[in-house]
Design a protein around this nucleic acid. Sequence first.
DNA 1: GCGAGTTTTTATACATGTAAGGAAAGTAGC
DNA 2: GCTACTTTCCTTACATGTATAAAAACTCGC
Lengths: 222, 222
Amino acid sequence: MPQPSAPRKATGRPPRISRAEVIETARRIVDAEGMDRLTMRRLATEVGSTPMALYHHVRNKEELLVLLLDDYAARTLHRPELPARPRERIVVAAAAIHEALAACPWIVEVLTADDLMSTSALWFVEQIVDGLVECGLSPERAVQAYRVIWYYTAGEIVVRTTAARRRTDDDRPTYRERVFSDLDPGELPRLTQVADRWASLTAEDTYLDGLRALVDGLLTPR
Amino acid sequence: MPQPSAPRKATGRPPRISRAEVIETARRIVDAEGMDRLTMRRLATEVGSTPMALYHHVRNKEELLVLLLDDYAARTLHRPELPARPRERIVVAAAAIHEALAACPWIVEVLTADDLMSTSALWFVEQIVDGLVECGLSPERAVQAYRVIWYYTAGEIVVRTTAARRRTDDDRPTYRERVFSDLDPGELPRLTQVADRWASLTAEDTYLDGLRALVDGLLTPR
DNA sequence: GCGAGTTTTTATACATGTAAGGAAAGTAGC
DNA sequence: GCTACTTTCCTTACATGTATAAAAACTCGC
């Protein structure tokens, strides 16, 4: 496996395809026809090679997706003007990451993979951690707080987009719908009370509200 | 597809296997040999049938996993004594769900599927929503706040367990490790500062701290 | 008992990711 | 040029989820 920036290779059969070429082609396919059309075979023919040849440039499909996410982040995650007040800076930086990720639902499989450690996202992470430190947290606490923010962000995207996906490619009633239509008001009064509004309530985008609450809570000394 | 509690079926070929039997066998396989050994073929032979026969009792493998999670929740999610103070009750209920889920890493694929709407988990959801209402939130706000808690909880589990999994079945250096070993101190001073501690910091279990912060933030009127 | 209708089961087939092993295409030492 | 070595590529094969269509097993109306 050639490292992204390998020193040199003076020997061996010369490569006919490059990792960059693979990624770019994959991106083209995804952009044009969606994530499910991205198969290793399809990608191989598209770059004029064979499926297994890809595996010399990419560890497996999952790594390909991670690299694709990286590529996506590098292209779309532009650094915004951040507020001066650290607390607002944290919120805006996190929201920027969230917005970028929420815009591409195909990311979900990858998101769970690791923390978002795309090089281009690191600047945002830095802003968040820095903001937390400026608000009085120790560097250690700041990192932990950042992680909490990340869990929330990743969870929101993953849960929401997979729920949405499930709704589109399956018209039968959801498990949730079935459960909710038959609650015991004696034992679950609150849920019964909101049962009919549950769907619309959960459809609302409350990421920002939740984020602000989370940041407030994280910054409140206990 | 026979509904979980179908009224009656007076006609048709009598089934030789039941959904319950399928789920139970699946559970046995998972318990004994782990999640990756659970294949539809394996399961079929284990129940003495053929792969495609399973699809009359289970929509697809994903639904099987959801049912498996349900079954697991029903067996292990016992109702604890909850504190009287609503704020504490919220925290304890959420932590109970989290603990149960964190104990079975194979759940990850399912977790993202939908909200945790296992019947046996609903009681905990009720407790959380009720606690939020008692703390002064409107029912609508309470549902939204519950969702925020759920995003955080699900995200924590998903991110952590997949990161852990990746670490075990791959000994090559993580993408994160590579990125972190080569930071630009000029542009990313905070991250550089904690780079060497990052791994150990992210290994710590901060779920409860984050949860408390989140609940505090959600309950603070803004 | 017989055909119609219904439900479950089976057989077959396909798309997909990827493991394994070997072939191709280059370089370096002789 | 020839051999050894290295890296990339290709062929083949397999496991898996599941679509499709047909067969099997039953009930009901007659």
